[in-house]
Structures are given as structure tokens and as C-alpha cells.
């Protein structure tokens, strides 16, 4: 399982952030060619992002590029430029239609085979930033084997829902639950949107704990200071890891003896408990498996 607790956005026309963003040790970086780049600078940002990708110094980060939306005339040039650099994935904004994902899948395959990259290597992360995109989230998440995650939008989604931001983001409760359900039904990650108030650490902590409880695997990040807070919340504690190990050992022993269930710390250990324990170890980076 690839950890995707944090994905740090790096503005595509900002050399300082593009070259140094990975040093803050997020699980992934998103080189952004979309909203962070003025329309007049798209060409220049594309060249800069290409050269930063070619340099390839991103530590252990999963490297993705947010391309321009598929209803613009920019997305083809974006993928033709960045995919041959061997990135881990692309992030598509404002996805509404599974047909667009199939079109993207084909386009990526063509570029990969021309560039000598294994076909299917480039993953797709879908941003669902409209009511229609959220409504179709399961169909989108299953439209290609390349889909690694689906992510609800923030401000764009609020605008499409004809609402505004509230203190606890109550307006996004429904969309977030739908995305989590669709993602897990499809076997992909559910990754949450950014927390925009970069000075409010308590608010970030509260929201992150809540989305973790809902079933998200991580959040996008717009400021490096947000990374340690989110990592702390999404990383199992030593006590949780120890307990998960004991549960898995006890379950293995029981299976070897032909027993169906067993007790650990006075609690019955059955299949769902073992599954949760395995997930805890995957999150701690101590066990392979899980979603793409």
C-alpha cells in the first residue's frame, strides 16, 4: 500500500517551491499546471515543470502533476509534456464523466508506448469538484485500472452546490461520504481536499481526525506546515501497532489449530478485527497489500 497521507501542491510556475517542496517530506507532491498558474503563463510553467521532472529529485515522494481540465485545449499538451518524464500519475480536475477517463486512458497509453514507458504505469487521480462528478463517483473510479484515488473538491464544489464555506464544512458532509463509499467499493483510495486556513492548526487537526474517521486515507496540502499534523493523525501509534501485531499473531495461531475465533485482551478476534489490524500495519508501512 502506498501511503498517501499528504499530497503537497507546488505551483507550476514557482521554481522555489517546485525544487524544494519535497524537502518537507510529504508522501506525495502535486506539480500544479492548473489553478496555480495564470492563463498567460501556462506555456512557461509547462516547460519549467518538464525540466524539474526530468531532474527527478523528489526523494521518496509520489510525483503527480495536476493537468488542466479536459474541457480546455491545454490538457493534451500537458500530458504529452509530462508523461514521458516518467511521473507516477496525473491529477485530473473537474472530472464529471467516466467517458473522459476512458479517453484519458487511451491517450496515456499512446504516450507511454511512444516514450518506452510500460503501458498503464501512469496512474490517474480524479478530482470530483461538481455535484455531477460526486454523483458519478463510483462509475468514474471504475472507468480505468489506472485510477488510484478519487478526491472531493473544496471551493469549486461548494460553488456548484450553491453554498458557502461553514466553520465545520457541514456542506461537504454528504459529498465526502459518497466519495469514501465509492472509493472503497471501487478499491481505490479516498483522498480529501485541502484545508484552506493555513494558520488554523486546531481546525486542520479537527477536520483531519474527522475525515480519517469517515474512511479517507489522506489529504491534499497547500502549506508545508500542515504536513506533520496530518501525518501524526494518519500514522498508527506504537500502542496500536503492537495491538495489531498481537491480533494477527493470535489469528494465525488459531487458524493453525483449526479454531475459528480467538480472544486478545479479553476481546473476540474475528475476521473484521483481523482485517482492521492488517490495515493498521499497512498504514504504518509494516505490511504490504491494500488498495492501489
Amino acid at each position: 500500500m502506498r501511503l498517501r497521507r499528504t499530497k503537497l501542491y507546488l505551483p507550476g510556475n514557482n521554481p522555489n517551491m517546485l525544487l524544494r517542496g519535497h524537502l518537507f517530506e510529504p508522501d506525495g507532491v502535486i506539480l500544479d499546471l492548473e489553478d496555480a498558474v495564470a492563463v498567460s503563463e501556462k506555456d512557461s510553467a509547462r516547460i519549467l515543470v518538464r525540466d524539474v521532472l526530468k531532474r527527478g529529485d523528489f526523494g521518496d515522494c509520489e510525483v503527480t502533476v495536476r493537468i488542466n481540465a479536459m474541457d480546455t485545449d491545454l490538457w493534451r499538451a500537458d500530458i504529452e509534456t509530462v508523461v514521458p518524464c516518467g511521473i507516477d500519475g496525473i491529477r485530473i480536475p473537474k472530472v464529471e464523466n467516466p467517458k473522459d477517463i476512458r479517453l484519458m486512458d487511451e491517450a496515456l497509453s499512446g504516450i507511454e508506448s511512444k516514450a518506452g514507458i510500460p503501458v498503464g504505469k501512469t496512474l490517474i487521480f480524479c478530482l470530483l469538484e461538481t455535484a455531477l462528478g460526486i454523483w458519478r463517483s463510483y462509475d468514474i473510479a471504475t472507468a480505468s485500472k489506472r485510477i488510484a484515488a478519487i478526491c472531493p473538491g473544496g471551493e469549486d464544489l461548494r460553488a456548484d452546490l450553491k453554498t458557502t464555506r461553514s466553520e465545520n464544512s457541514e456542506e461537504l458532509i454528504g459529498p465526502r461520504r459518497i466519495v469514501v463509499l465509492a472509493a472503497h467499493a471501487a478499491g481505490v483510495d479516498a483522498l480529501d481536499t485541502v484545508y484552506a486556513d493555513i494558520t488554523n492548526d486546531e481546525g486542520l487537526r479537527r477536520e483531519t481526525e474527522w475525515v480519517k474517521q469517515l474512511g479517507f486515507q489522506g489529504k491534499s496540502v497547500i502549506h508545508p506546515n500542515q504536513i506533520p499534523i496530518i501525518h501524526e493523525i494518519f500514522t498508527p501509534t506504537a500502542k496500536e501497532i503492537e495491538q495489531a501485531r498481537r491480533i494477527i499473531e493470535a489469528a494465525a495461531e488459531a487458524a493453525a489449530k483449526g479454531l475459528g475465533a480467538v480472544q486478545v485482551d479479553g476481546r473476540m478476534v474475528d475476521k473484521p478485527v483481523v482485517k482492521r489490524a492488517e490495515f493498521t500495519l499497512q498504514r504504518a508501512g509494516l505490511k504490504s497489500g491494500g488498495e492501489r
Binding site: P15, L19, D43, S44, I47, L48, R50, D51, V52, R55
Partner: peptide, 17 residues
């Protein structure tokens, strides 16, 4: 304070424009 990589990218962008 642009390094070589950034300089080359900016030269290419300006020249292409």
C-alpha cells in the same frame, strides 16, 4: 538566484514565445 535548470527553462519559454 535562478539555477541552471530554471535559467534554461525561462530562456526556452521566452524564445518559444
Amino acid at each position: 538566484g535562478a539555477g541552471d535548470l530554471v535559467l534554461r527553462a525561462r530562456v526556452e519559454a521566452a524564445a518559444t514565445r
